[in-house]
Design a protein around this nucleic acid. Sequence first.
DNA 1: TTGTAAGCGTTATCAT
DNA 2: ATGATAACGCTTACAA
Lengths: 341, 341
Amino acid sequence: MGASLTLEKIAELAGVSRSTVSRVVNDHPNVSEAVRERVWKVVRETGYQPHAAARSLVTRRTNIVGVIIPETVTTLFTDPFFSYLLSGITQTCNAQRYHLMLSLFNDPVAPGDSYRRVVRSGHLDGVVVASARVDDPLIPRLLKDHVPFVMVGRHPDKRVSYVDIDNVGAARMAVEHLIRSGHRRIATITGPLNMASGEDRLKGYRQALEAHHIPVDDSLIVEGDFSEASGALAARRLLSLSATAIFAANDIMAVGALKVLRDAGLRVPQDVALVGFDDIPLAAALQPALTTMRQPIEQMGAMSADLLLDLIETPPDDGAPAHKVILLAELVVRTSCGVLG
Amino acid sequence: MGASLTLEKIAELAGVSRSTVSRVVNDHPNVSEAVRERVWKVVRETGYQPHAAARSLVTRRTNIVGVIIPETVTTLFTDPFFSYLLSGITQTCNAQRYHLMLSLFNDPVAPGDSYRRVVRSGHLDGVVVASARVDDPLIPRLLKDHVPFVMVGRHPDKRVSYVDIDNVGAARMAVEHLIRSGHRRIATITGPLNMASGEDRLKGYRQALEAHHIPVDDSLIVEGDFSEASGALAARRLLSLSATAIFAANDIMAVGALKVLRDAGLRVPQDVALVGFDDIPLAAALQPALTTMRQPIEQMGAMSADLLLDLIETPPDDGAPAHKVILLAELVVRTSCGVLG
DNA sequence: TTGTAAGCGTTATCAT
DNA sequence: ATGATAACGCTTACAA
């Protein structure tokens, strides 16, 4: 498969040694102009391409970065969040000639198996980790093995670099919007509370209520897992509690909730106002259109890859502080919150 | 980065030779039970993992398959089609312990550059090609280099294996549904006509009309490129032609068309009926809910990966026929076609 | 059953 | 500026 051209062959054709060809191909300075051109010519004419494995065996670099997602396939691809994230990552990688390996870490039977096969085998120069729980064993492993990595979403460990949005502030903004519209009995469907984003958005919810001297009623806080089904389930639980508004920690759960509310004969926003988080394309198409917090997801992806490639190409000193980048989310007011229309 | 354990080290610790360790790790039969266990113990305790590059330098296999998409990032990730496709491919790859490299081939400046870097460098054991034009130079290149590959969507060359749906039949089904509802003046917004899916769906449209003795009016056929913008543009062109129904070759374009129709004061389905293709999640959430042809996209992804891994692991004889798999699409009737409600 | 040794195609060190 | 030559870590005949 493919032309089995080797350095050796090119060297022979160009009448030079392997080393010279290697130097030319790698743009090393110490090659005479004449030889350089002669070699390039042969390379072009033959379509020679260095063998990646041979190369990385000696350089210890692969020019591949991994995108690792510790989730099941289904949840992953259902949520456009990941598409946008991937899009951003891909753009950076393409621009800097890195390849991208997509890995779902989900080994129920032999935990750590994927890690060994994908990371420890030397396949990757670094890793972007998305959507990990704070206690995911992946993080300490990467740290221990000194693998360059960047998380999408914050992590408490001082040593990890990440890109995140101000989830606390964003959630607070969403809930305060509801409060300003006159709501007092506001429920929330949270994300998984062992994920930083889940925790932070709940914190923002609490802060908003407290800032407005509204007592926090724990029965109005229902944990979801970012899936539509969990949003529906949570909404069903909230049905009897006469909340006048619901803040869902992502749009997908808001969709689940919306269906349940509608089926229960409640009108949104007249009977119950609803606010989501993410601003996926579906949000705008929904009836009623979903008010939500827009995250710059694609930018987060691109930026995390930027940080990663930087980490890879200029390894920081041991004590150097990790990078923490916080981007902003914005409130997109549509009809589901009841402020317009 | 990572533990720099080598075969050598393990051999030393286990008191055997490198070859023996290699045999154990690769499950070769000719190893005594005692030695096998002793070696495995050391491997487990040390967390040894063979170096991928070293391994594939000699085996000429990487256990990585590429997903190649000759499109720009934006169009790619906007359309959930690719998410589902990726999902299917990922499932198969995960199950068979293959890794997945995601590559967008989009080199406006130096065509063929990505191909050389990604494919010719020996990075991949095989490739799934999605969303390629029939005349994409990628295909002959893969053929010439004897790279195992499977396309998602048919290709005229006898030698290429593919997974596709019966686009002609599906489009015909969609249009006949409109005809049965009494429509005679039916327009279509096609996909790119240099893609098999675009061509085939147009063919199905024509067949449906002809089967019902409705003359084909070429002014009612507008080419799009599967993007929302192109759908909108096409709809705008159709506005003055008094079509009573539009068949869009994918849902995204249908969404674009819907917005234009609505802005023009036309009601869907009362004034213009609309049918899409794909059944992306948005289709059901739309107002009115979009009637559409549902493709088993995830299954297509899984199946194309299945075929590919098969091709890789048991290379067919030279004259052996390529695999052609055709799956079925189904009509999902919602409100936009005007049959219900 | 186990070990020895020859590569796989590069890069990198050291001479020249 | 160029060329030998020794790794890099593994698999795989071939020997024992």
